[in-house]
Design a protein around this nucleic acid. Structure first.
Lengths: 233, 233
DNA sequence: TGACAAATTAAGTGCGCACATATTAGCATT
DNA sequence: AATGCTAATATGTGCGCACTTAATTTGTCA
């Protein structure tokens, strides 16, 4: 009957969010049941449910069956990152993409690689070192280990022209992906490859992917100085 | 009538995901309309909608009204990061948290700070430099600029005992947050503060927050060597 | 007192419907 | 051909209902 149109779940989300921000509900406090909020705001419970899901996804509240909804006691900043394939990243910045295979050998994986893959038994893997170029200049150096048991086909692929990253993305989808970011000093060989000063601070992205429980690949991508990773706008 | 129970939206999501992974729908391809998928799988359209929303959120497909649903042409790795407040982070690793104010001055913000805040006109801000400690040892050095126009109350806060980060989190909620990650070499003063070798590679998190369009604070958090940022498990 | 079972509770999900909204495509007018 | 109106269309959203599931509380019995 009210002339104002119905509430959208985003309205509900914002109202609840505001109530939390204003301090009406502090960290750890329990919010009213969905059904009561729906009643108070005069909307359907499904609308409140949707709003609460959104708040739960952003890490603002925690929801548990029977336990109800609580304001997350330890506030976190939750951010979403998009990491495109390197070719795309270079081209989006207006650069001309290039790729150069440096080394391709089968070798016994060192402990660190096994650990990243969550493997306990040592095994032989395919190691691929390559350089991504932007306008002919070094952009990212990647040191990749590919699990031959999970991806036997990789043995037949010519990686001199074809980028291992892209081949894997297109031919070996993953179901899980772990990422790790840190900084490292350029040693002489990396400095040489990336055309950087030895000792320069470099940004590193380590990514490991699995299909179900089977590791596909783990890669250490070392960027040239000045590289920055931004949150999704 | 089939004895199997009804399909969950997660089942639908996984089926569509599998269809994409198997190559049945390639990058850029258009998927059937929700209603047709619902019909084929013998479930409600709302169930398909929910599944599609999830796939859209994970960056696997793109949906547009009237345009339909398409497999995202440029595959990305989408990851979610949780960045806790530093006290929490230290305590979760089993350390004893400490905090030390180094400097607190009002000063005209340099261009880089203004740019981070998306401000064009120069202005005076409050600069707070502080050290987060774990078990008495340096952990993160933060160099923060606080916008006095947005947060005038900060002038009355004693920041020698109270952590600016936590005060802001608890007293000045933000509606937008930008993050930026990169690597930097320790200059002499930072190396001294963090008890690191000069020139060591350090991981940096830059965070800027706004309430609506008004900037609250921008902070450069420089971590000690060895620091790693992981995706949410 | 403690262990286990049963009842209770609040969120999670599925369905079907109606309508809203954005975007494309088609058509007509200039 | 360029323009602008109109219709068609696929997703987005809201509602109400019934039922499921997980977790907590209560009750019972040893």
């Amino acid at each position: 009957m009210s002339p104002e149109s119905r509430l959208s779940w985003k309205d509900v989300r914002d109202q609840i969010h505001d109530a939390i921000l204003s301090g009406r509900y502090g960290p750890g406090d329990r919010l009213p049941r969905d059904v009561d909020i729906a009643d108070e705001l005069n909307c359907a419970r499904s609308t409140v449910q949707r709003a609460m899901q959104a708040l739960s996804d952003s890490g603002i509240v925690e929801r548990r069956r029977k336990g109800g909804t609580r304001v997350r006691p330890d506030p976190v900043t939750r951010a979403t990152l998009d990491i495109p394939i390197t070719r795309r990243e270079v081209e989006q910045k207006g650069g001309r993409y290039g790729y150069q295979l440096i080394r391709r050998v089968e070798a016994v994986a060192p402990r660190g690689v096994l650990a990243a893959c969550e493997l306990t038994e040592p095994r032989t893997m395919l190691r691929v070192e390559a350089l991504h170029l932007s306008d002919g200049r070094p952009y990212i150096f990647e040191d990749r280990w590919i699990c031959l048991e999970t991806v036997p086909e990789i043995g037949d692929v010519d990686l001199t022209g074809q980028n291992a990253n892209e081949w894997l993305v297109q031919n070996k989808p993953y179901s899980r992906c772990d990422l790790r970011f840190y900084a490292v000093s350029a040693d002489d060989s990396v400095a040489d490859l990336l055309d950087a000063e030895p000792g320069a601070a470099l940004f590193v992205i380590e990514r490991t992917t699995w299909i179900d429980a089977a590791p596909i690949t783990t890669v250490k991508a070392i960027a040239t100085p000045g590289y920055q990773l931004l949150t999704r706008s």
